[in-house]
């Protein structure tokens, strides 16, 4: 025991003093490690990575997972000294912003030709390649609405009805990709003026803006709120877990975005990064995506998962990702100005 403590002391002292010298050496030895930023859901990542481990045991992947807005902000903050090697499964609008800042390196992964045109950058050597689309869905707690005696909202228009006052939770578009694509969809569908007027009314019904896009659905799942504006996958997974959540796709159509991959432009581009990007749109993993998401970069023959509309393409609104990317900063500033300055909690 005593010896161990002494050893540990020695160890920590050692690391304090010599880490400066050893770190550089270590980082060059572990060249095969790549740093991957992703906004994919926490509970989907392990399944995919198992596939990777089986087919590419030599690649050591270090995952940084966070909400879309945070991954975006992190990438932008590190612009001059990029840390990530690869971005995986992060909103195309965000990657477009990064691309506008010249942070992405073109790369054509294997199987690129299979990918639908609207799921990839139009450059011949694309700067980003999508893997799947995710879309707005309302998570509705069926117990709660029954107890409250209110119907489940079926559309955006329903959501702003006074009966839903204080029953809705929505993600903050600054930090959440789901939040942003929903706001962007509303502005695109309704136009700028009507869109903001709609959001003003919606604000009256919102109890809380959350940090992540999945939290509203989870709050709905535990009854902490009746309705959460979230995305399809989330509600369906929670229903599977036994939570009383129904996922409703608004009848006007869902906002959507493409979870995409990109190669970060930096001094040394590792070989493993490209292998990872090849793998990330390869058939085995694409099939895995398709088991929980109805729309993938290319058809895999996997049936539309339960809980989604039968024809998922029809649920998607006409969405201009370029417009969304170009206006992202302005939209977020306006949003923050309108809804974050309210200091008092709403009654």
């Amino acid at each position: 025991m005593k010896r161990e403590i002494r050893k540990l002391v020695a160890k920590s002292v050692f690391s304090m003093i010599f880490v400066a010298f050893t770190f550089m050496a270590i980082s060059s030895v572990w060249a095969e490690e790549i740093l991957v930023y992703t906004a994919l859901e926490d509970d989907e990542i392990p399944g995919y990575l198992n596939l990777l481990k089986n087919s590419h045991p030599d690649i050591d992947v270090k995952i940084v997972r966070d909400s879309t807005g945070i991954i975006t902000a992190k990438l932008l903050a590190e612009k001059d000294n990029p840390q990530a090697d690869v971005v995986w499964g992060t909103a195309a609008t965000s990657l477009l912003v990064c691309d506008q800042n010249g942070m992405l390196e073109g790369y054509a992964p294997a199987d690129l030709e299979k990918v639908r045109a609207e799921f990839r950058d139009s450059n011949p050597t694309p700067h980003w390649v999508g893997i799947k689309a995710w879309m707005t869905g309302f998570c509705v707690n069926s117990f709660e609405i029954k107890a409250l005696g209110i119907p489940a909202p079926q559309s955006y228009d329903d959501l702003i009805k006074p009966i839903y006052k204080n029953q809705v939770v929505m993600p903050n578009p600054a930090s959440s990709g789901t939040g942003f694509l929903t706001v962007s969809a509303i502005l695109q569908m309704m136009g700028k003026d009507k869109g903001w007027a709609y959001l003003d009314k919606l604000h009256e019904n919102i109890v809380q803006y959350t940090h992540s896009g999945s939290k509203p659905c989870k709050l709905a799942g535990s009854g902490e709120s009746a309705i959460g504006i979230s995305f399809g996958y989330r509600g369906i997974m929670q229903k599977q877990k036994g939570e009383p959540v129904e996922t409703i796709f608004p009848k006007e159509g869902s906002g959507w975005d493409v979870e995409s991959n990109a190669l970060i432009k930096k001094g040394v581009i590792k070989k493993s990064s490209k292998i990872f990007l090849d793998w990330a749109i390869s058939e085995p993993v694409m099939k895995e995506y398709a088991k929980v998401y109805p729309l993938t970069a290319y058809s895999t023959g996997v049936a539309v998962p339960e809980g989604y509309p039968a024809e998922p393409e029809k649920q998607l609104i006409k969405n201009d990702l370029q417009w969304a990317a170009a206006n992202r900063t302005a939209i977020l500033e306006e949003w923050s100005r309108r809804y974050e300055s309210k200091s008092e909690p709403k009654k």
């Binding site: 945070i70 902000a73 903050n172 930090s175 803006y209 309210k342 200091s343």
Partner: peptide
């Protein structure tokens, strides 16, 4: 909830918006 205070602002500014 939506009641902002300084400490959460720092967190939001740094983590949320970098």
């Amino acid at each position: 909830g939506n009641y902002n205070i300084l400490a959460t602002d720092i967190y939001k500014q740094v983590i949320g918006q970098q």
